[in-house]
Design a binder for these strands. Structure first.
Length: 136
DNA sequence: GCCAACGTTGGC
DNA sequence: GCCAACGTTGGC
């Protein structure tokens, strides 16, 4: 199982809405590197749901339930989306400041490349953030 | 509100 | 095919 991090602006699509919806289509990605990450996702992969801008914290965990398929909101027909479902919220959101302050997390792909909206997470990073978020 | 990082566009 | 100009994202 691979792990990922999905970024969303709370004003565009918030964790609250994710929990309310239960499942959602992760559309709107228009960056090739992010799209390549979407294409690499397999059913059953897990991902952190991160609030960018307002919030700047990891809110919880979602799971890929449908692998990359065409994004109908893309006129060019080149970009894809995946479908995800809510798994569980963190008891305590993990902030960007905490991640940057942690020696084993400060080199995470999404910290180093802040504009990348879909990024890979290593098994070690996954474990640490889970324990910080008090899930298990 | 500012600015760094980075992607895209368009002139050559 | 290069690169300057410009736009966008996202942290501060």
């Amino acid at each position: 199982m691979a792990c990922w991090l999905l970024k969303s602006e709370p004003f565009a699509y918030s964790w609250t809405q994710m929990v309310r919806d239960g499942t959602t289509r992760w559309n709107g990605v228009r960056n090739h590197q992010a799209a390549n990450n979407l294409k690499a996702m397999k059913k059953g992969d897990k991902a952190f749901f991160y609030h960018s801008n307002e919030g700047k914290q990891v809110m919880g965990i979602v799971e890929v339930i449908k692998e990359a398929h065409p994004d109908p909101t893309d006129d060019t027909g080149k970009f894809v989306m995946v479908d995800v479902k809510t798994v569980k919220p963190f008891a305590r959101p993990v902030t960007l400041a905490e991640i940057k302050a942690h020696p084993d997390l400060r080199n995470m792909a999404f910290v180093r490349q802040s504009r990348l909206s879909v990024s890979p997470v290593t098994a070690g990073e996954w474990k640490i953030i889970n324990s910080l978020g008090k899930t298990r």
